[in-house]
């Protein structure tokens, strides 16, 4: 499998405080990579470096290299809007816009200049299908997204991300605010989505990482302690620190 993204010797500082140390990691295309580790270990910070969401934070300094299809994401001529279209993001808490279900999904396309109603209708349907939400909402597309359950809202946010045809989808603890059934639905969806997209997911739920990912990276204190096939990480990790963490013996 080809690498969709590559990270080489990435160091990240918030002002004088270093948050990531020499992180190198390859993300194979059409796979799910899970990032696990205790709070504050740098996994969310790392995730945000992949589509330059950290640019929005004051005082951030980054060195090292992040590439998407071999192109340097941090090159001065990078079109950040285009980058974030290609590398979409789903957040911890579902954050639908205060508008209808339809308008939520169509939002990205409209921002990118699409006005043809037929095209928008098609994108909305396909994206909602892709996020396994279509059947539940097809009769109430014009109603407010706020009326959906938490799990539905999160799938709506996934549909909104898919609507702009991303290549990579970043997910920052996408199930932490959801009940077990909604969580299972999202996990199943992730397995479906990897056929068409590449997914990098931060999760606090180690079992979730074990269930859905192909590869798992264990972060600790801003460093990648171990990165390997998920089957290996969860049956015979090479590092004692990894084993201690995944078996709950940490600290």
């Amino acid at each position: 499998m080809d690498d969709k993204m590559q990270v080489e010797r990435l160091n990240l500082f918030y002002g004088a405080a270093q948050a990531l140390y020499d992180v190198s990691l390859r993300v194979p295309e059409h796979s799910v990579v899970a990032l696990i580790g205790p709070s504050g270990c740098g996994k969310s910070t790392f995730l945000k470096t992949l589509n330059r969401m950290n640019d929005l934070v004051d005082g951030v300094h980054i060195d090292g290299r992040v590439t998407l299809d071999g192109q340097d994401v941090y090159a001065p001529d990078t079109d950040i809007v285009l980058l974030r279209k290609r590398v979409g993001m789903v957040f911890q808490r579902p954050n639908p816009f205060p508008m209808s279900i339809y308008d939520n999904v169509a939002y990205g396309c409209r921002v990118h200049g699409v006005t043809d109603k037929k095209v928008l209708d098609e994108v909305v349907e396909q994206s909602l299908q892709g996020a396994a939400l279509w059947d539940e909402v097809k009769d109430r597309l014009k109603t407010s997204a706020g009326g959906l359950s938490g799990g539905q809202q999160q799938r709506l946010c996934i549909a909104r991300t898919l609507a702009v045809a991303p290549e990579v989808v970043l997910m920052d603890e996408p199930c932490s605010a959801l009940d077990p059934i909604s969580t299972m639905k999202i996990e199943e969806l992730v397995s479906e989505l990897k056929q068409r997209y590449t997914i990098v997911m931060v999760t606090h739920n180690m079992q979730q990482a074990a269930r859905v990912s192909d590869r798992t990276a264990f972060f600790l204190n801003g460093k990648v302690i171990e990165y390997d096939d998920t089957n290996v990480i969860f049956t015979k990790p090479a590092q004692k620190k990894t084993e201690d963490y995944i078996t709950g013996r940490f600290g």
């Binding site: 299908q129 892709g130 396994a132 279509w134 059947d135 059934i181 299972m184 639905k185 996990e187 199943e188 969806l189 397995s191 479906e192 269930r211």
Partner: peptide, 11 residues
């Protein structure tokens, strides 16, 4: 994708 049970790979 609709109407499929969850956890298909596991099943």
């Amino acid at each position: 994708m609709e109407n499929k049970s969850t956890r298909q790979e596991y099943i």
